[in-house]
């Protein structure tokens, strides 16, 4: 029997969030999904988060290098390399056949954001590594060499870093997953905002007050961008924004907003307090992680519920007449 399902009941007391579109009836095959949710697990949102953290940190590292802020430079370069290394590991681990990772490098396909991303990472990773190596207390020739390479490598990493931060939005949006796809006009801005907030936040945790001015501004700017565009995005999406409010992804998105807003406020007020700066920075980092996990899981939910596939497509057909 086919089911004609009424929309799910809204969670009671959900912070007064309003429904974006009127309830719609739709038909499905035994309520089963039309689409398949990605087989990806927590490694992928972790990768999105850490990649963003790394990218923002490379930018901070290069700026710190050029403006004579050695402590900020060191913290940022090391964060960038650690972030990209762990995120790369997560990416490989999530493959069905990790031992075949290198097959990613047999082609370069502009139509595949994952192919494009792999090449971006292949260029970025070693540069971030070379920049971080300059921070190691290596003796002799090796030390001189790494320190010599530190600046050019760091600048080159910073040049590629914005792509590392923004392409991951395309990675999610270039799917049939309703919530990810419908977010495609805004998600890159949400993700670079999130990356800026995370990297600025991490620098507030790690670097001394005297050098964190730029990191503070990057963190606050990123947080504001993320919060503002995320709001716009949900308004533009209609029905498929719903999974961003409900269940676990809804909790994550609410946590993300609270942490990001509080972190940004704390970062502004905490210019003279090492403790407040560090706590605010940690909140921003956590907020960024919540954004990535929230968006990821909302998409997974939207693929599992045929409502988000059938209703918008029906409406599209009706509009076309």
């Amino acid at each position: 029997m086919t089911t004609t399902a009424e929309p799910r009941r809204r969670r009671k007391g959900g912070g007064g969030e309003r429904r974006m579109v009127p309830p719609a009836k739709f038909t499905s095959y035994y309520g089963r999904p039309v689409l398949k949710a990605s087989p990806w697990e927590k490694e992928i949102p972790a990768y999105l988060f850490l990649g963003g953290l790394a990218a923002g940190s490379s930018l901070l590292g290069a700026g710190a290098d050029l403006t004579g802020r050695p402590a900020l430079r060191r913290a940022s370069r090391i964060t960038a390399f650690a972030g990209i290394t762990v995120s790369f590991g997560a990416l490989v681990k999530d493959l069905g056949r990790p031992e075949r990772f290198a097959n990613m490098l047999r082609v370069a396909k502009p139509s595949s954001p994952m192919s494009v991303g792999t090449w971006i990472l292949t260029v970025y990773g070693p540069l971030a590594g070379a920049a971080a190596a300059a921070e190691l207390p290596l003796p002799g020739v090796l030390g001189r060499l790494t320190r010599l390479l530190g600046r050019p490598a760091g600048l080159a990493a910073a040049a590629v870093a914005p792509a590392v931060a923004s392409y991951t939005a395309v990675l999610l949006s270039d799917t049939a997953t309703p919530t990810w796809h419908d977010a495609h006009r805004h998600l890159p801005f949400v993700f670079v905002g999130s990356a800026a907030a995370a990297s600025g936040g991490m620098a507030l945790v790690l670097a001394p007050l005297g050098e964190t001015g730029p990191a503070r501004r990057l963190a606050v700017g990123g947080a504001v961008l993320e919060l503002a565009v995320e709001r716009q995005m949900e308004q533009a999406m209609g029905l498929t924004a719903e999974p961003l409010h409900e269940g676990r992804p809804g909790q994550l998105m609410r946590a993300s907003r609270a942490l990001t807003a509080a972190g940004a406020l704390g970062a502004m007020l905490g210019r003279r307090s090492r403790v407040l700066s560090a706590v605010s920075g940690a909140a921003l980092v956590a907020g960024s992680a919540c954004t990535r996990f929230g968006v990821f899981e909302a998409g997974q939910e939207s693929a599992r519920d045929p409502r988000y596939t059938v209703v918008p497509q029906r409406e599209r057909l009706q509009r076309r007449g």
Partner: peptide, 16 residues
């Protein structure tokens, strides 16, 4: 859009 966002991040980093 991703290109614009990347430029925005770069510009932001220069500005800070």
């Amino acid at each position: 859009k991703a290109g614009l966002a990347a430029l925005a991040l770069l510009a932001g980093a220069v500005a800070v």
